[in-house]
Design a protein around this nucleic acid. Structure first.
Lengths: 127, 127
DNA sequence: CAAGTATATACCGTGTTTGGTATACAAGAA
DNA sequence: TTCTTGTATACCAAACACGGTATATACTTG
């Protein structure tokens, strides 16, 4: 499996991770909530564990799985350069549209949504 | 291929995306920089294009590929709940260590690094 | 037109991953 | 011990993605 990206490529594994975000869960609880055969759950948990996404503790005959942050932070770190890219991209688009507003101001044929400080903020970067 | 996560699971495709972050590139330029056979580059670019990661414009017999932000933003959005998780995790760890400091203060056997407002900030969330 | 350059696609072989089923293993309960 | 619950693993079959090679397409230049 090797890389964290291959691990999260599998939809059921992403579902398991999303379940674990709220709290730790046993294999049986995951099995029920995702309506997925138990061996499948165990196999995916094995992949997740070996990649460092989760860890488990034994509680009698149950095993409780919980999230570990490192691999997800690795993905977050990989995303960083692209975040810079798309915030620049949004800025460039805004400058472009501002110029369009100016040049089409006289014709006033196409009405664009209000622009300015009260427009919607994007979630990515506030800086 | 379907999902953006499967698309970025492939190392060569991530390499291509990283190349395009600085500026748009032709197929031949990507081929040379990644030392990868041309059909492989074209095939990966096709996958990236169909998933919306890149778009291309024709420049004579070349095709220039550039990044599109949406799919990467989708990955970023998927990461959001986990970011909340691991910042909480860090906070809990810090509280735990603070309690340890208190209870071991008298024994003063283990010296821990200085804690407080001047400690290193984590990259995830500034808020 | 022919030749050359740049890119895309078709085809094939192969390794890997996934789901399914059965079974093994472990720990409590009776 | 035997039974039951909870979880892991072994095995198999099907699907699929990837690399490689050859070829097709498109545009440019002579």
């Amino acid at each position: 499996m090797e890389s964290v990206f291959e691990v999260i490529a599998e939809p059921n594994r992403r579902a398991i991770l999303s379940l674990l975000v709220s709290s730790q869960q046993s294999v049986g609880e995951i099995e029920r909530q995702l309506a997925m055969p138990q061996p499948a759950v165990s196999k995916h948990l094995r992949v997740l564990r070996e990649a460092g996404f989760v860890e488990s503790t034994v509680a009698a005959q149950r095993r409780l799985y919980r999230l570990k942050p490192e691999p997800l932070q690795e993905i977050d770190a990989w995303l960083a350069p692209f975040r810079r890219f798309w915030s620049a991209h949004v800025d460039a688009l805004e400058r472009h549209l501002d110029r369009m507003d100016q040049s089409t101001a006289t014709k006033s044929k196409t009405a664009r949504k209000r622009r300015g400080p009260n427009r919607e903020r994007h979630k990515g970067e506030t800086k």
